[in-house]
């Protein structure tokens, strides 16, 4: 079980809900992923279309926990206001805090992120900050009251996997007790397996599943990868080495001596 704030999660795969071909495929993908947590957002609602109402009904029928995000917010003020609005609509203190600092990479504005996290934690929110692998920023976020961190693997939607292995390993080693969830940039299930093998507690995936040719099959593949990666971590992987080490015992080898 993975303890996240006061909740114990069985599944280590969280799923985003955006960019699926249809609501029905999204629902099937959530089931195939065996996800317990899905991310959601808030957008302007047109009175005529009522698109948000239909989406919210679909999510409630799935019976999963929602993790609302502050996607698209570029300032502390926008992010904090959006968090309050999300808490009212979704009825959860959880907030995936995003303060975007740069539009080409969508990398977080870590200065604004820490400010917004401090303010929201003080107001009783349970904050999941979307951050980088920077150790100092991580320390500040924990000091601000965050009890979980969501470092990026690679830029959102890029599908590049774990871009900075050294930095991510250092983050894991430096905060062995803090739940760390890789958010963003994973492209294929092997990236997710690698994250779990390295000791990360969970992954959040959206585009890699939603934009796959068959999102439902890909969701199932990610679920298997996350389970395999977690099992491998529990089993204790060997350390890589530079030279060969024979796996077949040498004692009694034929034709020698």
């Amino acid at each position: 079980m993975l303890p996240i704030y006061q909740t114990q999660l069985r599944s280590r795969l969280m799923l985003g809900t955006a960019r699926y071909p249809s609501p029905a495929i999204l629902a099937e993908a959530v089931r195939a992923a065996r996800a317990e947590v899905v991310t959601v957002s808030l957008r302007r609602e047109s009175a005529g279309e009522r698109a948000g109402q239909a989406f919210w009904s679909l999510i409630r029928e799935l019976g999963v926990r929602v993790l609302p995000n502050t996607a698209g917010c570029h300032s502390v003020k926008e992010a904090v206001t959006t968090a309050h609005m999300a808490r009212e609509v979704f009825g959860t203190p959880w907030i995936k805090l995003e303060v975007i600092g740069e539009d080409d990479t969508l990398q977080p504005d870590v200065f604004g992120l820490v400010d917004a996290a401090r303010s929201l934690c003080a107001e009783g929110f349970e904050v999941f900050p979307y951050t980088t692998e920077d150790l100092v920023v991580a320390e500040r976020l924990l000091s601000a009251g965050c009890r979980v961190l969501m470092p990026w693997g690679a830029p959102i939607g890029s599908g590049r996997g774990l871009n900075n292995l050294f930095g991510l390993k250092a983050l894991r080693a430096h905060f062995p007790e803090v739940p760390l969830i890789i958010d963003a940039g994973l492209g294929v299930p092997s990236h997710a397996a690698q994250a779990l093998e390295l000791g990360f507690d969970a992954v959040l995936v959206n585009t890699a599943v939603a934009q796959a040719r068959d999102p439902v099959q890909m969701a199932g593949a990610f679920a298997q990868a996350v389970e395999a990666g977690f099992a491998a971590r529990q089993a204790g992987p060997i350390e890589p080495r530079d030279l060969a080490a024979p796996s077949t015992p040498l004692i009694g080898t034929a034709f020698r001596g």
Partner: peptide, 10 residues
């Protein structure tokens, strides 16, 4: 006035 509703998100 901003009127926001649940929407898909990552």
């Amino acid at each position: 006035l901003e009127v926001l509703a649940p929407m898909q998100g990552g």
